[in-house]
């Protein structure tokens, strides 16, 4: 069947099999940041935006994304680098395999709630598993990023 998807801002038309999952569709289109970590929708590694919502691309039929906008980290490189730098400054991007999904979902959080508290951050990101970092460094990075953003908005230079 034929589907039309706007993938990272680019309109594409493809012939696909009806049971093709969105994760395999986007990876085939070169969006290798999207990772597979499980078969039971638990790990969050495959997080992408469907329109503006973070979803699990491993659990979505590509067919269902027909006519929709799909965004992966490849389409958010500037935001990823800006936020990711704060994770990098903690050394919290260890193996990095959870990072794309985690960063996608973190960006979704910031859009939904620009000034989340610690508990809100943890709960929003609960579906993003990480085995390397113990989550603590990622939280430090997030809090530093949020503080930096707040200062930037206020026009405070660091």
């Amino acid at each position: 069947m034929l589907i039309n998807i706007v993938l990272n801002g680019k309109k594409i038309t493809r012939e696909i099999e009806p049971d093709l999952l969105l994760i395999d569709f986007v990876r085939k289109e070169g969006c290798f940041s999207v990772k597979r970590g499980c078969e039971t929708s638990n790990c969050g590694l495959c997080t992408v935006f469907l329109n503006d919502k973070p979803v699990l691309s491993c659990s979505l039929l590509a067919a269902r994304a027909d006519g929709q906008q799909v965004t992966t980290l490849e389409g958010l490189q500037e935001e990823a680098a800006e936020f990711g730098a704060f994770i990098a400054d903690q050394g919290a991007e260890q193996c990095g395999f959870c990072n794309p999904g985690f960063i996608m979902n973190a960006l979704a959080l910031f859009r939904e709630n620009p000034e989340p508290g610690e508990e809100e951050i943890k709960e929003y990101l609960a579906g993003n598993l990480c085995r390397c970092s113990g989550y603590e460094g990622q939280l430090r990075g997030i809090l530093n990023f949020l503080a930096w953003k707040k200062d930037k908005k206020r026009g405070v230079s660091l």
Binding site: F32, S33, Q77, A80, A85, G91, E93, G96, F97, P100
Partner: peptide
Amino acid sequence: QPLRKKDAMQLVTGQPVYMDD
């Protein structure tokens, strides 16, 4: 010193650096 990892920015921007990539 707490220097950034050499592959840090590649990892946080999701570059294709793993086996299946």
